[in-house]
Design a protein around this nucleic acid. Sequence first.
DNA 1: CTGAATTGTTTCAATCAGGTTACAAAACAG
DNA 2: CTGTTTTGTAACCTGATTGAAACAATTCAG
Lengths: 230, 230
Amino acid sequence: MKPSIFVVEDDPDISRLVRHHLEGAGFAVKLFPTGHTVVSESERQRPTLFILDIMVPGKDGLELCRQIRQTQSLAATPVIFLTAKSGEADRILGLELGADDYIPKPFSPRELVARVKAVLRRFERPLSQSPLRIGEIEIDPGAMTLTVRGQQVTTTATEFRLLDYFARHIGRVFTRDQLLDSVWRDTAYVTPRSVDVYVRRIREKIEPDPENPRYLKTVRGAGYRFEAAK
Amino acid sequence: MKPSIFVVEDDPDISRLVRHHLEGAGFAVKLFPTGHTVVSESERQRPTLFILDIMVPGKDGLELCRQIRQTQSLAATPVIFLTAKSGEADRILGLELGADDYIPKPFSPRELVARVKAVLRRFERPLSQSPLRIGEIEIDPGAMTLTVRGQQVTTTATEFRLLDYFARHIGRVFTRDQLLDSVWRDTAYVTPRSVDVYVRRIREKIEPDPENPRYLKTVRGAGYRFEAAK
DNA sequence: CTGAATTGTTTCAATCAGGTTACAAAACAG
DNA sequence: CTGTTTTGTAACCTGATTGAAACAATTCAG
């Protein structure tokens, strides 16, 4: 699932610009020309990040930020300000209010995307990087290496993510759809049957006999399950 | 973006003074009259530097410093103490706690700014000093020299920092964004693809066969990884 | 035993990620 | 101020990856 960003900005030129570049970078973007409905919408949809213009009519960005920070379910969501003036007041106010970053206008598209990514990186909980060993299989996410029976085996990124996911949830059955949701980057339009293909590819790399899998088992009518081979 | 400084000081006269002079010197300043919310705010905003009064009500500066040092994401942020008494004890305690400097009250504005700048300069991406040898490659950060198979090779500053970073994190995969974060000075304006170009340049200098890298490997879908060649 | 449902396997075109080069701009040195 | 080096970008190219489709094999129900 791609991260979603709520953008509160009254100037349609700017908001269109922002949307265009963020979507280009793989984010889902929702625009709000005013601040009125933002908080209630956000509580329902839980955006990954806010971008607020300091000056928006009706309810300005500063006030909005204050509200977000006071709302239990949104308090932890990062906020980035767009500021027109590069004057002191705005920047400091941003700091005072607990914004996570600010982008002075005018900004380059690249800067916008870079800052958003940087803030998200700062917030994302570091995923388990600890190496994992199951039977004859060793998975090291930090190095992105897979070792099977002492032999280093190359994998593609998707194969690796899928295998890692299986290996960290030993014994559980996952449907194809569940796997798409948790392993694939953009789940949107991928056929569940593609999972089969990847299972096949992984089996070829980890199973002594891919036709008779010892690790990655098929659960007919349900999906797949990873087992620690006996 | 200008560096931000969090100041924890209960005396409003002093804090106003500090703010005024630091802002005049081009820093963004946020004041905290007590220490209560400092750590949580800091995790969010990542100040560039802390200035703590040794004595603040509620939670004193020493305790606060200890907390900062124990917080993963803040441990590397420099801390400067403001101390009223010029007694040794306080000073040493501060230093032992991991403070990076102290400013005895009363202080001149110039001294304040000078010390802040000095500390920041000291913290600016210090290259590790110890030489490093990996296979046929020798890296000496102190001299900023690179020796490959006995031959001294010239590098540019960025090439050297990047190679040094790789060499000190052997076996780990880094995304282009991560590398920009940790090696480049101002990440916001640089395309991730620029990393590719530098990787190419480094390969030309260290690899016997740049088309078939033995050290600096590509990890498709992830980034790059430095390996000790067999 | 038969047919339906499910999974396995292979192939292949489109896409994407990375490599490479040339170049403009910025920084630097003289 | 001028020439040189460094830095980062853009554009183009190539080959690997991805995922769908088509068909084969297996399982299951009745």
